[in-house]
Amino acid sequence: MIGSPAWLLAAALAPPQQSAPSAPAAEEQTYIISTIWTRPEHCNLAVATRVALPDLLREPKKWGGKCVAVDGYWQQRALFIFPPRERYAEGDAALKGSRVGIYGTEELLSSAPRSSQRYTAVGVPGMCETIRQAAVMVFGYCHYADGPYLAIAQMRRRQRSAFHR
């Protein structure tokens, strides 16, 4: 009988069983970052601070975590100070200091122009190096490049300004 006193005594006198190694007290979290975006109800053109793209690129940590609106030329996964050449490599170090990476919803990213167009990007800046420290894999702009990125809430196409003499 399993519940008999003889069985309990035998179990108590038996040599201790080898236990499996215990799990660490706090399991490490594994993150794969593929998309980052900002909610438009929290960050939009009405509440954003206007920042010139060169200023954001020069002092990205000053603007980190704040809602900003930045004008530039949007092409693929970046917003540029000047229109880039038609084709460029995302990891091209020569472009450092002339662009900010773009993260957003899949819908936004799939609508990115293949050739540069003037846009106002509204979002929250961050640093590629920071998100890489928190993840085992980062997709998108920060997979190839260092520096600042914008987690986009809104993108507004800008009309070409009229030339006045």
Rank of each mutant, 00 (worst) to 15 (best):
R165Q: 00
A23V: 06
T30C: 10
K61R: 14
E59V: 06
G64V: 09
V68W: 02
L13F: 13
M155Q: 05
E59K: 14
G64D: 12
M127T: 02
L109M: 12
Y149C: 04
C43R: 10
M1E: 15
A94N: 12
R114P: 03
A151G: 07
V136H: 06
E107L: 14
P54R: 11
A134E: 13
H164C: 05
A46L: 13
H143L: 09
Q18C: 05
H143M: 09
P113G: 08
Q76C: 01
Y31N: 13
A14T: 09
T105Y: 09
L56E: 01
A20L: 13
V68I: 11
I131G: 02
R50G: 06
G123K: 01
A52R: 12
I32Q: 15
E27L: 14
E106I: 07
D55Q: 13
C43T: 09
A11Q: 15
P60L: 14
V136A: 07
A48E: 04
V68A: 06
Y141L: 03
L9G: 14
G91W: 03
Q75T: 04
A26K: 15
T130K: 03
P148L: 05
T35Y: 15
E28F: 06
S111H: 04
S4C: 15
L9K: 15
V138T: 07
A20D: 13
G72A: 12
A25V: 14
S110W: 08
R165N: 02
R118T: 02
W37K: 06
A121G: 01
C67E: 00
T130L: 03
P84H: 03
L108V: 01
R156P: 05
K62C: 00
R156V: 10
Q159W: 02
Q159I: 03
A11M: 15
A46T: 11
S34K: 10
Q29D: 13
L53P: 02
L13H: 08
R114Y: 04
C128Q: 03
E41L: 10
R87K: 13
G123N: 00
A151T: 04
V100W: 07
P113S: 12
S110L: 11
A112R: 08
V51L: 12
G97I: 00
R160P: 14
W74E: 04
P84C: 05
G123D: 00
L79V: 07
D92T: 02
A26W: 14
M1Q: 15
G72R: 12
V136T: 11
S110D: 14
G3F: 15
D146C: 05
L95C: 09
G104Y: 06
M1S: 15
V51Y: 11
V122L: 01
A134I: 08
V51Q: 10
A153Q: 08
E59N: 13
R158S: 09
Q154F: 09
A78M: 01
P21M: 05
A12H: 14
K61T: 09
E86L: 09
S34Y: 07
K61G: 06
A112N: 04
V68S: 00
A93Q: 09
G72M: 11
A11H: 14
D71H: 05
Q133V: 10
S116D: 06
P16D: 10
R158I: 02
Q133K: 15
V47H: 10
W37V: 00
I131Q: 07
L9P: 10
V51D: 10
A145E: 13
G101H: 05
K66C: 02
V51G: 08
Y88W: 13
Y88T: 08
A11F: 14
S98K: 10
A121I: 04
S115L: 08
Q75D: 01
Q133D: 08
M127R: 01
Y31S: 11
